[in-house]
């Protein structure tokens, strides 16, 4: 049996009286897209932050590539090969689009302790950054100040920066939000191919995308995973239907 790349084992996290993560266990296998769905406030982003860094769990472990990363910083997890995008875009807003992507390539190369030569003249870094922008369709905006991008474009840039890291796994928190119908379709096609490079743990509200992409779907409600299975299994699951899908239009 192949080992999971990412293994979340019995995670708990409470904010005061609110149990945001309530004994979550899940895996991400090589080559798969594992979608995490659930109603607003279910604890999806909180779970992502415990996996990729930012929130420390009260109990439980996060294993990445066989290594316990629970106590590692965000920075160390990124270095270990976790590529991550945020639900609320987190970018250097005054920098250009290309500079944000070059920053990713720089982080990946680890060659930040250089104090003389202009980074934007570093052909290798700029080429990697430009390639990533091209893949998400932002190449035309390379010279744009990031603050001037639309929300959807910022999501694309987050994905591009994650690509420059050449990560071993992606953790994406609602990458389709704000993209619009055609943008979502393009992103769906893109992520479909991306899973061959690295598996994706995908939090997404866009059900068309989730059902089209996911090899497995986990449903998170009140911090608990109430079901995990293929798209068909999830659609058929009575618990899921009442707890979650009932509110959405699945037909």
């Amino acid at each position: 049996m192949t080992e999971p790349l990412l293994h979340v084992d019995g995670l708990y996290k409470a904010f005061g009286a609110l149990q945001a993560t309530d004994g979550v266990t899940l895996t991400l296998m090589p080559g798969e897209i594992h979608a995490l769905i659930g109603p607003n406030g279910a604890g999806k982003s909180t779970l992502i932050k415990q996996i990729a860094g930012g929130v420390t769990p009260d109990a439980g472990r996060v294993w990445f590539k066989g290594q316990d990363v629970t106590a590692l910083s965000t920075q160390a997890r990124a270095q270990a090969g976790l590529g991550r995008t945020f639900q609320i875009s987190s970018l250097a807003m005054e920098a250009t689009v290309l500079q944000n992507a070059v920053l990713g390539a720089l982080g990946r190369a680890g060659s930040v302790w250089r104090f003389l030569r202009p980074v934007m003249r570093d052909a290798a870094l700029v080429a990697q950054a430009q390639a990533a922008l091209e893949r998400v369709g932002l190449a035309d905006h390379a010279a744009t100040r990031t603050a001037e991008l639309s929300h959807g474009q910022r999501r694309l840039l987050e994905v591009a920066v994650a690509l420059t890291l050449k990560p071993h796994a992606f953790v994406m928190d609602e990458p389709m939000a704000g993209l619009g119908a055609s943008g979502s379709k393009r992103m769906t096609t893109f992520l479909d191919g991306l899973r061959r490079e690295a598996p994706i743990l995908l939090v997404e509200h866009d059900m068309d995308a989730v059902f089209a992409l996911a090899d497995r779907i986990s449903v998170l409600v009140y911090g608990k995973i109430i079901a995990t299975g293929t798209a068909d299994e999830i659609r058929a699951d009575p618990l899921v239907r009442t707890a979650y899908l009932g509110e959405e239009d699945v037909a």
Binding site: A52, G53, G54, S73, T74, Q75, A78, R84, F86, S90, L91, A92, M93, E94, A95, Q99, N100, V102, L103, G104, L106, G107, R108, S111, V112, W113, R114, F115, L116, R117, P118, V119, M120, D122, V161, T164, L165
Partner: peptide, 20 residues
Amino acid sequence: APFGLALSAARQNAERVETV
């Protein structure tokens, strides 16, 4: 330089810098 880009990015958004 690379250092300047990273430092200025850290000023604008520390989380972004950690994420790379």
